[in-house]
Design a protein around this nucleic acid. Sequence first.
DNA 1: TAGCATACGAACCGACGGTTCGATTTTCAA
DNA 2: TTGAAAATCGAACCGTCGGTTCGTATGCTA
Lengths: 191, 191
Amino acid sequence: MLPTNKARADATRNRAAILAAATSLFAREDISNVSVQDIAQAAGVSKAAIFRHFGDRSGLIQEILEPRAAQLREAVESGPPPLGPGAPPAEALETYVEALLDFVWRNRALIRAFEYLGPDAYYANNASRFWLAELTRRLAATTPDVDAKYLAYAVFTALRADVIDHLLTVPGMTRERIRTGIHNLATSRPA
Amino acid sequence: MLPTNKARADATRNRAAILAAATSLFAREDISNVSVQDIAQAAGVSKAAIFRHFGDRSGLIQEILEPRAAQLREAVESGPPPLGPGAPPAEALETYVEALLDFVWRNRALIRAFEYLGPDAYYANNASRFWLAELTRRLAATTPDVDAKYLAYAVFTALRADVIDHLLTVPGMTRERIRTGIHNLATSRPA
DNA sequence: TAGCATACGAACCGACGGTTCGATTTTCAA
DNA sequence: TTGAAAATCGAACCGTCGGTTCGTATGCTA
Protein backbone atom coordinates (compact mmCIF):
# COMPACT_ATOMS: atom_id res chain seq x y z
CA MET A 1 0.00 0.00 0.00
CA LEU A 2 1.65 3.20 -1.15
CA PRO A 3 1.13 6.45 0.76
CA THR A 4 -1.99 8.04 -0.59
CA ASN A 5 -0.84 11.70 -0.84
CA LYS A 6 -4.45 12.72 -1.02
CA ALA A 7 -6.10 14.62 1.80
CA ARG A 8 -9.47 13.48 3.00
CA ALA A 9 -12.39 15.67 2.09
CA ASP A 10 -13.38 16.34 5.73
CA ALA A 11 -9.81 17.20 6.62
CA THR A 12 -9.60 19.76 3.84
CA ARG A 13 -12.93 21.20 4.78
CA ASN A 14 -12.03 21.47 8.47
CA ARG A 15 -8.70 23.04 7.72
CA ALA A 16 -10.34 25.77 5.69
CA ALA A 17 -13.00 26.31 8.34
CA ILE A 18 -10.34 26.68 11.03
CA LEU A 19 -8.37 29.23 9.01
CA ALA A 20 -11.51 31.22 8.25
CA ALA A 21 -12.70 31.19 11.85
CA ALA A 22 -9.31 32.15 13.23
CA THR A 23 -8.89 35.00 10.75
CA SER A 24 -12.29 36.34 11.62
CA LEU A 25 -11.82 36.08 15.38
CA PHE A 26 -8.33 37.56 15.31
CA ALA A 27 -9.63 40.50 13.33
CA ARG A 28 -12.53 41.06 15.66
CA GLU A 29 -10.87 41.17 19.07
CA ASP A 30 -7.56 41.23 20.87
CA ILE A 31 -5.49 38.21 20.00
CA SER A 32 -4.60 37.31 23.56
CA ASN A 33 -8.30 36.98 24.32
CA VAL A 34 -8.85 34.42 21.59
CA SER A 35 -8.16 30.91 22.84
CA VAL A 36 -7.69 27.86 20.69
CA GLN A 37 -10.95 26.60 22.12
CA ASP A 38 -12.73 29.72 20.87
CA ILE A 39 -11.43 29.12 17.37
CA ALA A 40 -12.42 25.46 17.48
CA GLN A 41 -15.92 26.37 18.54
CA ALA A 42 -16.30 29.03 15.85
CA ALA A 43 -15.07 26.59 13.23
CA GLY A 44 -17.34 23.82 14.43
CA VAL A 45 -14.40 21.55 15.15
CA SER A 46 -12.73 20.07 18.20
CA LYS A 47 -9.65 21.66 19.70
CA ALA A 48 -7.63 18.57 18.88
CA ALA A 49 -8.30 19.09 15.18
CA ILE A 50 -6.55 22.46 15.32
CA PHE A 51 -3.46 21.01 16.93
CA ARG A 52 -3.46 18.16 14.45
CA HIS A 53 -3.58 20.50 11.47
CA PHE A 54 -1.26 23.26 12.65
CA GLY A 55 0.93 21.80 15.37
CA ASP A 56 0.39 24.56 17.88
CA ARG A 57 -1.11 27.99 18.28
CA SER A 58 1.75 29.77 16.55
CA GLY A 59 1.58 27.38 13.59
CA LEU A 60 -1.97 28.42 12.92
CA ILE A 61 -1.12 32.10 13.06
CA GLN A 62 1.85 31.60 10.79
CA GLU A 63 -0.26 29.76 8.24
CA ILE A 64 -2.68 32.67 8.05
CA LEU A 65 0.03 35.27 7.67
CA GLU A 66 2.32 33.43 5.32
CA PRO A 67 0.48 33.85 1.99
CA ARG A 68 0.04 37.56 2.61
CA ALA A 69 3.72 37.98 3.35
CA ALA A 70 4.66 35.93 0.31
CA GLN A 71 2.82 38.33 -1.94
CA LEU A 72 4.77 41.34 -0.70
CA ARG A 73 8.00 39.41 -0.76
CA GLU A 74 7.41 38.50 -4.38
CA ALA A 75 6.82 42.14 -5.29
CA VAL A 76 9.98 43.21 -3.50
CA GLU A 77 12.20 40.50 -4.93
CA SER A 78 11.07 40.43 -8.53
CA GLY A 79 8.25 42.89 -9.13
CA PRO A 80 8.50 46.11 -11.13
CA PRO A 81 10.39 49.08 -9.66
CA PRO A 82 10.30 51.10 -7.53
CA LEU A 83 9.20 48.39 -5.10
CA GLY A 84 11.04 45.73 -7.07
CA PRO A 85 14.75 45.97 -7.95
CA GLY A 86 16.09 48.68 -10.20
CA ALA A 87 14.83 51.96 -8.77
CA PRO A 88 17.13 54.76 -7.57
CA PRO A 89 18.10 54.16 -3.91
CA ALA A 90 16.10 56.98 -2.34
CA GLU A 91 12.95 56.03 -4.14
CA ALA A 92 13.50 52.32 -3.49
CA LEU A 93 13.80 52.98 0.22
CA GLU A 94 10.79 55.22 0.42
CA THR A 95 8.56 52.82 -1.49
CA TYR A 96 9.72 49.89 0.57
CA VAL A 97 9.08 51.53 3.92
CA GLU A 98 5.68 52.58 2.66
CA ALA A 99 4.93 48.99 1.60
CA LEU A 100 6.02 47.63 4.98
CA LEU A 101 3.83 50.08 6.83
CA ASP A 102 0.94 49.16 4.60
CA PHE A 103 1.51 45.47 5.25
CA VAL A 104 1.69 45.97 8.98
CA TRP A 105 -1.33 48.18 8.86
CA ARG A 106 -3.51 45.66 7.10
CA ASN A 107 -2.30 42.70 9.11
CA ARG A 108 -1.60 44.21 12.47
CA ALA A 109 -4.02 41.99 14.33
CA LEU A 110 -2.21 38.88 13.10
CA ILE A 111 1.25 40.33 13.57
CA ARG A 112 0.46 41.17 17.15
CA ALA A 113 -0.27 37.52 17.70
CA PHE A 114 3.31 36.83 16.73
CA GLU A 115 4.70 39.42 19.05
CA TYR A 116 2.83 37.74 21.89
CA LEU A 117 4.55 34.44 21.34
CA GLY A 118 7.83 35.51 22.84
CA PRO A 119 10.49 38.18 22.92
CA ASP A 120 12.32 37.16 19.76
CA ALA A 121 9.33 35.82 17.86
CA TYR A 122 8.79 39.09 16.01
CA TYR A 123 12.35 39.30 14.73
CA ALA A 124 13.20 35.63 14.49
CA ASN A 125 10.70 34.31 11.97
CA ASN A 126 11.72 33.91 8.36
CA ALA A 127 9.52 36.64 6.98
CA SER A 128 10.82 39.27 9.38
CA ARG A 129 14.39 38.28 8.72
CA PHE A 130 13.80 38.96 5.06
CA TRP A 131 12.09 42.31 5.64
CA LEU A 132 14.90 43.35 7.91
CA ALA A 133 17.71 42.30 5.59
CA GLU A 134 16.11 44.10 2.68
CA LEU A 135 15.56 47.20 4.81
CA THR A 136 19.19 47.14 5.84
CA ARG A 137 20.27 46.96 2.20
CA ARG A 138 18.11 49.86 1.09
CA LEU A 139 19.17 51.99 4.05
CA ALA A 140 22.83 51.27 3.39
CA ALA A 141 22.36 52.39 -0.19
CA THR A 142 21.00 55.78 0.80
CA THR A 143 22.82 56.64 4.02
CA PRO A 144 26.26 55.02 3.92
CA ASP A 145 27.56 57.14 6.79
CA VAL A 146 25.39 55.58 9.52
CA ASP A 147 25.06 52.14 11.04
CA ALA A 148 22.49 50.81 8.59
CA LYS A 149 21.97 47.58 10.47
CA TYR A 150 21.08 49.31 13.71
CA LEU A 151 18.94 51.88 11.94
CA ALA A 152 17.10 49.08 10.15
CA TYR A 153 16.31 47.50 13.50
CA ALA A 154 15.07 50.81 14.85
CA VAL A 155 12.80 51.43 11.89
CA PHE A 156 11.57 47.86 11.91
CA THR A 157 10.84 48.13 15.61
CA ALA A 158 8.89 51.33 15.00
CA LEU A 159 6.82 49.25 12.57
CA ARG A 160 5.83 46.74 15.25
CA ALA A 161 2.11 46.18 15.27
CA ASP A 162 1.76 46.71 19.01
CA VAL A 163 3.59 50.03 18.76
CA ILE A 164 1.45 51.24 15.91
CA ASP A 165 -1.73 50.13 17.63
CA HIS A 166 -0.66 51.99 20.73
CA LEU A 167 0.12 55.18 18.80
CA LEU A 168 -3.29 55.00 17.18
CA THR A 169 -5.30 54.40 20.30
CA VAL A 170 -3.60 56.14 23.21
CA PRO A 171 -1.99 59.32 21.89
CA GLY A 172 -4.46 59.16 18.98
CA MET A 173 -1.97 59.70 16.19
CA THR A 174 -3.24 59.37 12.64
CA ARG A 175 -1.88 56.90 10.17
CA GLU A 176 -0.51 59.77 8.14
CA ARG A 177 1.39 61.17 11.11
CA ILE A 178 2.93 57.78 11.84
CA ARG A 179 3.81 57.39 8.18
CA THR A 180 5.61 60.72 8.14
CA GLY A 181 7.42 59.90 11.37
CA ILE A 182 8.73 56.58 10.10
CA HIS A 183 9.69 58.17 6.82
CA ASN A 184 11.72 60.81 8.67
CA LEU A 185 13.36 58.11 10.74
CA ALA A 186 14.44 56.23 7.65
CA THR A 187 15.69 59.21 5.70
CA SER A 188 17.25 61.43 8.35
CA ARG A 189 20.96 61.93 8.62
CA PRO A 190 23.31 62.65 11.52
CA ALA A 191 23.29 66.29 12.60
CA MET B 1 -9.74 49.85 69.84
CA LEU B 2 -8.16 52.26 67.37
CA PRO B 3 -6.62 50.89 64.18
CA THR B 4 -3.11 49.85 65.00
CA ASN B 5 -1.31 51.21 61.90
CA LYS B 6 1.59 48.97 62.78
CA ALA B 7 2.54 46.03 60.60
CA ARG B 8 3.09 42.72 62.23
CA ALA B 9 6.66 41.54 62.43
CA ASP B 10 6.04 38.39 60.40
CA ALA B 11 4.31 40.40 57.71
CA THR B 12 7.24 42.78 57.39
CA ARG B 13 9.68 39.89 57.31
CA ASN B 14 7.73 38.00 54.67
CA ARG B 15 7.30 41.06 52.52
CA ALA B 16 11.03 41.63 52.46
CA ALA B 17 11.70 37.96 51.79
CA ILE B 18 9.32 37.99 48.83
CA LEU B 19 10.92 41.08 47.31
CA ALA B 20 14.39 39.63 47.74
CA ALA B 21 13.45 36.26 46.30
CA ALA B 22 11.65 37.80 43.33
CA THR B 23 14.52 40.16 42.54
CA SER B 24 16.96 37.29 42.63
CA LEU B 25 14.85 34.97 40.50
CA PHE B 26 14.02 37.65 37.95
CA ALA B 27 17.68 38.45 37.58
CA ARG B 28 18.65 34.82 37.19
CA GLU B 29 16.31 33.62 34.46
CA ASP B 30 13.75 34.71 31.94
CA ILE B 31 10.84 36.43 33.59
CA SER B 32 8.17 34.43 31.83
CA ASN B 33 9.64 31.27 33.32
CA VAL B 34 9.32 32.52 36.89
CA SER B 35 5.89 31.74 38.32
CA VAL B 36 4.42 33.24 41.44
CA GLN B 37 4.68 29.80 42.98
CA ASP B 38 8.42 29.76 42.30
CA ILE B 39 8.83 33.06 44.09
CA ALA B 40 6.74 31.87 47.03
CA GLN B 41 8.83 28.76 47.38
CA ALA B 42 12.11 30.68 47.18
CA ALA B 43 10.87 33.12 49.80
CA GLY B 44 9.59 30.38 52.08
CA VAL B 45 6.02 31.66 52.08
CA SER B 46 2.74 30.57 50.54
CA LYS B 47 1.56 31.86 47.21
CA ALA B 48 -1.38 33.54 48.92
CA ALA B 49 1.02 35.70 50.92
CA ILE B 50 2.37 37.21 47.72
CA PHE B 51 -1.08 38.10 46.45
CA ARG B 52 -2.00 39.52 49.84
CA HIS B 53 1.06 41.79 49.89
CA PHE B 54 1.19 42.88 46.28
CA GLY B 55 -2.25 42.37 44.81
CA ASP B 56 -1.13 40.54 41.71
CA ARG B 57 1.94 39.57 39.75
CA SER B 58 2.40 42.97 38.18
CA GLY B 59 2.12 44.68 41.55
CA LEU B 60 5.10 42.76 42.80
CA ILE B 61 7.17 43.65 39.75
CA GLN B 62 6.16 47.28 40.01
CA GLU B 63 7.18 47.39 43.66
CA ILE B 64 10.64 46.15 42.81
CA LEU B 65 11.11 48.60 39.99
CA GLU B 66 9.58 51.66 41.56
CA PRO B 67 12.39 52.77 43.90
CA ARG B 68 14.95 52.43 41.15
CA ALA B 69 12.86 54.54 38.81
CA ALA B 70 12.23 57.12 41.52
CA GLN B 71 15.94 57.70 41.89
CA LEU B 72 16.40 58.53 38.22
CA ARG B 73 13.26 60.60 38.19
CA GLU B 74 14.56 62.64 41.10
CA ALA B 75 17.85 63.29 39.30
CA VAL B 76 16.02 64.36 36.16
CA GLU B 77 13.52 66.59 37.88
CA SER B 78 15.68 68.34 40.43
CA GLY B 79 19.26 67.07 40.26
CA PRO B 80 22.25 69.04 39.01
CA PRO B 81 22.62 69.67 35.26
CA PRO B 82 23.18 68.35 32.69
CA LEU B 83 20.79 65.55 33.74
CA GLY B 84 18.77 67.91 35.88
CA PRO B 85 17.26 71.16 34.59
CA GLY B 86 19.39 74.00 33.32
CA ALA B 87 21.77 72.50 30.78
CA PRO B 88 21.90 73.59 27.13
CA PRO B 89 19.32 71.62 25.09
CA ALA B 90 21.73 69.45 23.12
CA GLU B 91 23.63 68.38 26.19
CA ALA B 92 20.44 67.89 28.18
CA LEU B 93 19.09 65.56 25.52
CA GLU B 94 22.26 63.57 25.16
CA THR B 95 22.67 63.08 28.90
CA TYR B 96 19.04 62.11 29.31
CA VAL B 97 19.09 59.48 26.56
CA GLU B 98 22.28 58.11 28.04
CA ALA B 99 20.66 57.90 31.47
CA LEU B 100 17.60 56.14 30.08
CA LEU B 101 19.72 53.59 28.29
CA ASP B 102 21.68 53.03 31.46
CA PHE B 103 18.49 52.54 33.45
CA VAL B 104 17.09 50.09 30.94
CA TRP B 105 20.40 48.31 30.78
CA ARG B 106 20.61 47.72 34.50
CA ASN B 107 16.97 46.82 34.94
CA ARG B 108 16.14 45.13 31.69
CA ALA B 109 15.09 41.87 33.30
CA LEU B 110 12.47 43.64 35.37
CA ILE B 111 11.36 45.92 32.57
CA ARG B 112 10.79 42.94 30.32
CA ALA B 113 8.40 41.61 32.91
CA PHE B 114 6.34 44.74 32.35
CA GLU B 115 6.36 44.36 28.62
CA TYR B 116 4.99 40.86 29.08
CA LEU B 117 1.97 42.10 30.96
CA GLY B 118 0.22 43.44 27.89
CA PRO B 119 0.56 45.56 24.79
CA ASP B 120 0.21 48.94 26.44
CA ALA B 121 1.79 48.06 29.77
CA TYR B 122 5.19 49.35 28.72
CA TYR B 123 3.92 52.77 27.71
CA ALA B 124 0.97 53.11 30.05
CA ASN B 125 2.55 52.96 33.50
CA ASN B 126 3.29 56.16 35.34
CA ALA B 127 7.05 55.92 35.18
CA SER B 128 7.11 55.43 31.40
CA ARG B 129 4.72 58.29 30.88
CA PHE B 130 7.13 60.53 32.70
CA TRP B 131 10.19 59.32 30.78
CA LEU B 132 8.33 59.81 27.54
CA ALA B 133 7.04 63.28 28.33
CA GLU B 134 10.49 64.42 29.38
CA LEU B 135 12.02 62.90 26.26
CA THR B 136 9.50 64.72 24.11
CA ARG B 137 10.36 68.02 25.81
CA ARG B 138 14.09 67.62 25.33
CA LEU B 139 13.69 66.53 21.72
CA ALA B 140 11.42 69.46 20.97
CA ALA B 141 14.06 71.79 22.38
CA THR B 142 16.77 70.53 20.04
CA THR B 143 14.94 69.64 16.85
CA PRO B 144 11.93 71.93 16.51
CA ASP B 145 11.42 71.08 12.85
CA VAL B 146 10.33 67.49 13.39
CA ASP B 147 7.42 65.77 15.12
CA ALA B 148 9.01 65.53 18.56
CA LYS B 149 6.21 63.48 20.00
CA TYR B 150 6.49 60.78 17.38
CA LEU B 151 10.26 60.81 17.51
CA ALA B 152 10.13 60.44 21.28
CA TYR B 153 7.99 57.35 20.88
CA ALA B 154 10.39 55.93 18.34
CA VAL B 155 13.42 56.49 20.56
CA PHE B 156 11.59 55.20 23.62
CA THR B 157 10.56 52.12 21.67
CA ALA B 158 14.15 51.55 20.63
CA LEU B 159 14.92 51.57 24.36
CA ARG B 160 12.54 48.69 25.08
CA ALA B 161 14.21 46.00 27.10
CA ASP B 162 13.14 43.20 24.80
CA VAL B 163 14.55 45.04 21.80
CA ILE B 164 17.86 45.68 23.48
CA ASP B 165 18.09 42.11 24.71
CA HIS B 166 17.44 40.92 21.20
CA LEU B 167 20.10 43.18 19.69
CA LEU B 168 22.58 41.91 22.22
CA THR B 169 21.92 38.24 21.78
CA VAL B 170 20.90 37.58 18.20
CA PRO B 171 22.81 40.01 15.98
CA GLY B 172 25.38 40.30 18.78
CA MET B 173 25.58 44.08 18.88
CA THR B 174 27.62 45.65 21.64
CA ARG B 175 26.22 48.04 24.15
CA GLU B 176 28.35 50.78 22.65
CA ARG B 177 26.96 50.18 19.18
CA ILE B 178 23.41 50.35 20.49
CA ARG B 179 24.26 53.49 22.40
CA THR B 180 25.60 55.17 19.29
CA GLY B 181 22.60 54.08 17.27
CA ILE B 182 20.09 55.50 19.72
CA HIS B 183 22.11 58.67 20.00
CA ASN B 184 22.01 59.09 16.22
CA LEU B 185 18.29 58.46 16.24
CA ALA B 186 17.73 61.19 18.81
CA THR B 187 19.98 63.79 17.24
CA SER B 188 19.51 63.26 13.51
CA ARG B 189 17.63 65.72 11.37
CA PRO B 190 15.56 65.42 8.21
CA ALA B 191 17.61 65.12 5.04
C1' DT C 1 -2.42 36.48 80.08
C1' DA C 2 -6.78 37.41 77.70
C1' DG C 3 -8.65 38.49 73.55
C1' DC C 4 -8.80 40.59 69.13
C1' DA C 5 -7.02 41.95 64.74
C1' DT C 6 -4.38 40.21 61.30
C1' DA C 7 -1.35 37.37 58.62
C1' DC C 8 -0.85 32.68 57.66
C1' DG C 9 -0.99 28.51 54.20
C1' DA C 10 -3.53 24.32 52.32
C1' DA C 11 -6.83 23.49 49.32
C1' DC C 12 -9.34 25.03 45.77
C1' DC C 13 -10.93 27.48 41.21
C1' DG C 14 -11.45 28.30 36.17
C1' DA C 15 -8.84 28.78 32.00
C1' DC C 16 -5.08 28.04 29.34
C1' DG C 17 -2.18 25.26 25.64
C1' DG C 18 -1.50 20.81 24.54
C1' DT C 19 -2.11 15.31 24.48
C1' DT C 20 -4.35 10.67 24.53
C1' DC C 21 -7.14 7.31 22.74
C1' DG C 22 -11.08 4.82 21.27
C1' DA C 23 -14.88 5.66 17.92
C1' DT C 24 -15.99 7.12 13.23
C1' DT C 25 -15.31 8.20 8.51
C1' DT C 26 -12.96 8.04 4.09
C1' DT C 27 -10.41 5.83 0.75
C1' DC C 28 -9.00 2.37 -2.42
C1' DA C 29 -7.54 -2.30 -3.78
C1' DA C 30 -9.52 -6.65 -4.60
C1' DT D 1 -19.42 -3.87 -4.09
C1' DT D 2 -16.97 -4.76 -0.23
C1' DG D 3 -14.00 -4.71 3.64
C1' DA D 4 -10.21 -3.37 6.07
C1' DA D 5 -6.22 -0.08 6.53
C1' DA D 6 -5.43 4.66 7.11
C1' DA D 7 -6.58 8.91 8.51
C1' DT D 8 -9.58 12.06 11.00
C1' DC D 9 -12.62 12.84 14.45
C1' DG D 10 -13.87 14.79 19.41
C1' DA D 11 -14.49 13.87 24.57
C1' DA D 12 -11.91 13.52 28.30
C1' DC D 13 -7.80 14.32 30.28
C1' DC D 14 -3.10 16.58 31.86
C1' DG D 15 0.02 19.90 34.13
C1' DT D 16 0.51 24.70 35.03
C1' DC D 17 -0.79 29.16 35.43
C1' DG D 18 -2.64 33.45 38.12
C1' DG D 19 -5.70 34.20 41.57
C1' DT D 20 -9.27 33.23 45.73
C1' DT D 21 -11.37 31.11 49.97
C1' DC D 22 -11.42 30.11 54.59
C1' DG D 23 -10.36 27.95 58.91
C1' DT D 24 -6.14 28.25 61.85
C1' DA D 25 -2.05 30.11 64.03
C1' DT D 26 0.43 34.14 65.43
C1' DG D 27 1.72 38.73 66.97
C1' DC D 28 0.22 42.75 69.48
C1' DT D 29 -2.01 45.38 73.15
C1' DA D 30 -3.99 46.15 77.36
